[in-house]
Design a binder for these strands. Structure first.
Lengths: 243, 243
DNA sequence: CGGAGTTTTGACTTCGATCAACGAAAGTGG
DNA sequence: CCACTTTCGTTGATCGAAGTCAAAACTCCG
């Protein structure tokens, strides 16, 4: 198999992911058909297409988004190392959103046709797939609550805290900084805010010393304050399966 | 088993749901442990709780919602006949939102502990569970796009069309009307709008003869116009599994 | 009849969108 | 190496969609 062996997968070491048994590990080696490396701005999955492939993000970050008829873009969520993409197309037949790389990315590639094999022969792994779906569903629900009920400042605070937590759990935090290689426009499109207002709100958070985000690096200076501003109850990060 | 036998399940007849094999039917009979009937306003699942039960809506309607710390409520989505509830708690350990009945409801009850059995012994049904999750995930993504990118009129039009389609597919349409036993406040909380503005927007749609909703009955007078107003491409309703 | 819940309407306010312009950085090509 | 373009972040001025406040009209029910 080209690329990283699952045995040496750097993500497995992170405590945010549930451990593999030897048997699962062996199976994943066969399930994985290769590795995909893409440049920034590459479209990995296209809305409406019928991708024969499923992916796990090994390295790098991206966005899932849809484009409305009037040209507006909604970023559904961000794609971080460990995230799984393509299940919708795998199950439902076609992608309901696009996936684009924001940085250089490395992805583990699986064959969609093998999905059914997983359900038939590896119920544990099938259960994990459903788990991943459930976690995703929960997060989307929280996003809906943010867009529906939080004002601009709260939304940004919410997003920054959630992103920071997620990246820290993925082992990417260093000296209080976490890499966040997106544009302000991406965050704006994720939160349903205009670019201008997103910029001003970020400046406000910077001015009161709560959070800084520049040159692709995010620093949260007062996580507690940000969390209470965003009305987040900091949930103990729960370990989840890795695909 | 108390209540309706799966064999006579009225939902099975609807073409929106994929057919059962004889074997699956037999299994579902054993999986189903009973029936729950509740009055309007009853909380069926409570956020944060660890429900030992999973439900399929046989009859009636409800809401899934979360409440923020400031007391604001976000309706994540509405619960219609055929919908499955409780999977999140079943998989992740605790409910991330509450479920409340809006009308009298009848629900099929399953034991959460049997879930793993399903994955181990009935991979087809496990696959269907994942399918249901994927459909739900897709819908939540579309909701996010609505809250993020559509204005009040478009949001309401979007919601009315989606609801109408769903209920019609469930076989509840009659003479152009569909039952919609929610309060305007529920729709407002689902779309992130104030009650007052929701009311005024509904009136506007009524005045231009696009849609009427009163006394729990919804009528869409010009579906095409509503759909194009909402920037919806009417997707061919896809049959989906029933649990 | 009184009271609670819901829908409706009008008056006023505000948050965030839009418009517009500028600066910095990075890439491109002659 | 320097004009030129493109992309992204920043800031100020103005406007409008939707929120908030308040109160009336209709239920439905005990």
């Amino acid at each position: 198999m080209p690329g990283t062996s699952c045995k040496n997968c750097p993500l497995r070491k992170r405590s945010m992911f549930l451990p593999f048994t030897e048997e699962e590990l062996a199976f994943m080696e066969t399930f994985k058909t290769g590795e995909l490396k893409v440049d920034p701005r590459t479209t990995i999955l296209l809305e409406g297409s019928n991708s024969p492939q499923l992916y796990t993000v090994l390295d790098g970050m991206g966005t899932r988004y849809t484009t409305l008829e009037n040209g507006k873009r909604q970023v559904i969520n961000f794609l971080f190392p460990g995230d799984f993409a393509g299940l919708q197309a795998g199950i439902m037949g076609e992608m309901k959103h696009s996936v684009e790389a924001s940085t250089h990315m490395t992805l583990c590639v699986f064959r969609r046709d093998d999905l059914w094999e997983v359900f038939r022969r590896y119920p544990e792994r099938a259960y994990d797939l459903t788990w991943i779906g459930a976690v995703e569903e929960h997060f989307l629900g929280e996003t809906i609550a943010s867009l529906g009920q939080r004002d601009a400042t709260q939304r940004i605070a919410w997003a920054l805290v959630r992103i920071y937590e997620r990246l820290k759990a993925a082992g990417l935090e260093k000296d209080g900084f976490v890499p966040l290689p997106f544009r302000q426009q991406d965050l704006a499109d994720a939160l349903g805010l205009s670019l201008v207002h997103t910029n001003k709100t970020l400046k406000a958070l910077r001015d009161i010393g709560l959070a800084q985000w520049s040159e692709g690096q995010l620093e949260l200076l007062k996580v507690e304050d940000l969390a209470s501003l965003a009305m987040i109850d900091l949930e103990r990060p729960q370990a989840r399966p890795l695909m």
